[in-house]
Design a binder for these strands. Structure first.
Lengths: 271, 271
DNA sequence: ATGCGCATAAAGGTACGACCATTCCAGAAC
DNA sequence: GTTCTGGAATGGTCGTACCTTTATGCGCAT
């Protein structure tokens, strides 16, 4: 017998639908509102999906779509058998979207380096002015990681990430830290995919003096060295990049027209 | 009779699950791969949900979670009765995540302005060097919009957005354009929420000379004027911001402990 | 031949229900 | 007090049914 055949999709008591938008998008917005209103705090646990769905008068499947959006964006973490929690660490919120952006726009490492060159010297200056003891410690840590990387490309890249992140954090500018760390991460991913190499000694030769300048609170020097570092990195990259780019281009062209779905096993059966 | 009671969740033929991750997250990654491999182009239509679900051997509801993630991030657009399409315009990809980031980190307009001050002069310089005729036209357009805004706060803000966006685009740095336009949008939203006013004449007094400098390809001047513009804006904001901030803080504290779910109407009935 | 209009198919949107795997926790057993 | 254990709660997945919107093609009138 089911419930009633005429269940109305409109007239949601709490989720007022203007009639044009998906429930999911509305739910995401509601969630933003909840954050804005301070109803959720970092680490706090969300109500169970079933309760939330009942609260908003939507199906659990619809609610889950919204929660999944939040989870993929790194806003919440869902744990089986436990519950959903608002993340404490927000540093991953931009990560996935940034990757998509770079993929969609076919962003090149060159463009990214140019962007970094525009801002990182400035951030290095701020870092020199504002770094705390903890920030300095993190910088030192990154240098140590570098030295003990033993040529492992993955370790080198993550040490490099840590170094620059430490500077961002030391700048005490929240959005800059998040945004540029995400940019770095996405960039690192690109570099790893194309398996580019980083010259260990070369990089350290730049990182160490930058760290020292920050320690001594010499903002001008930190900024100048950072600019040199990035300029140098650009020069190295562009040279190697040329070949990589050509190769990748060939790859892409080769499979460009390949259909998304090949012959299927199930579900066809009509045409 | 259903299908078979022992349907195995593992052994997906195409979607290989390591056993720890969600299907949704995996699907999102698959989608990234598809982009990376050039299987999808801007504007191209995705296979129907039912086909995609069959292809990946997952339920449609699971697949929809992944697609919703992409839609909210602005990667694809889903049209009822039609299909899903890869977006042509990628400028909204960071919008929603950026808003969440700022909400989660409780980012202040002051921090954002500091960040802008670090980079926008540099972008203005690039714009002066690289602007095309179209870019200049867009700049002019923004000035016209400004003048015909008639004091409408919303129009003023969107004109301001357009002005700065035009400069970003003129800089010919893709990621910088996307990232900072998104930052601007999120920031504009914050400002609109707190209903802050923008001084029309004041703003125009800065925008016009900047545009002229760009037209004349005077990078130094463009950069300097932009720095002054932002410094000025900062000064104006911080003064007004103080009061706003206090007020918002009170608001938040007032409802901080309010429970997320109140007494419900339906669906309870057990405890 | 052209154009209009309507029926049909196909696509996304939503709801509901069932079941699984994991986790937590309280109460029993020691 | 500690350990064990079973049940309840929770997120994860699947599958089905149905709705609304949209595109399309066919037939009929012009």
């Amino acid at each position: 017998m089911r419930s009633a055949p005429n269940r109305s999709y409109k007239s949601a008591p709490i989720l007022e639908n203007n009639g044009k938008e998906d429930v999911t998008s509305l739910l995401v917005k509601r969630f933003q509102d909840m954050l804005r209103d301070g109803l959720l705090r970092q680490g706090s646990r969300l109500p169970p999906e079933r309760d939330l769905a009942a609260h908003f008068n939507v199906a659990r499947s619809s609610l889950r779509q919204a929660l999944k959006v939040l989870e993929v964006m790194g806003v919440i973490t869902q744990k089986v058998g436990d519950g959903s929690y608002l993340n404490t660490d927000t540093s991953a919120v931009l990560a996935v979207p940034m990757e998509f952006l770079f993929l969609l726009d076919d962003t090149s490492v060159g463009e990214l380096t140019e962007l970094r060159l525009l801002i990182e010297p400035g951030l290095a200056r701020l870092a020199a002015e504002r770094a705390t003891a903890g920030d300095i410690a993190l910088l030192r840590q990154s240098i140590r990681d570098f030295e003990s990387s033993g040529g492992d490309n993955l370790k080198i890249v993550s040490s490099d990430l840590l170094f620059h992140r430490a500077i961002f954090q030391a700048s005490k500018n929240g959005p800059a830290t998040s945004v540029f760390h995400s940019i770095h991460r996405a960039m690192a991913k690109m570099i790893l995919v194309t398996s580019q190499l980083v010259d260990l000694e070369h990089t350290l030769a730049f990182h160490k003096p930058i760290m020292q300048a920050i320690e001594r609170r010499d903002g001008d020097r930190a900024a100048r060295l950072m600019a040199e570092h990035l300029t140098d990195a650009t020069a190295l990259l562009t040279r190697e990049q040329e070949h990589q780019h050509q190769r990748l281009l060939q790859d892409r062209i080769a499979r460009e027209r390949r259909p998304l779905l090949r012959g299927k096993t199930a579900s066809s059966g009509k045409n």
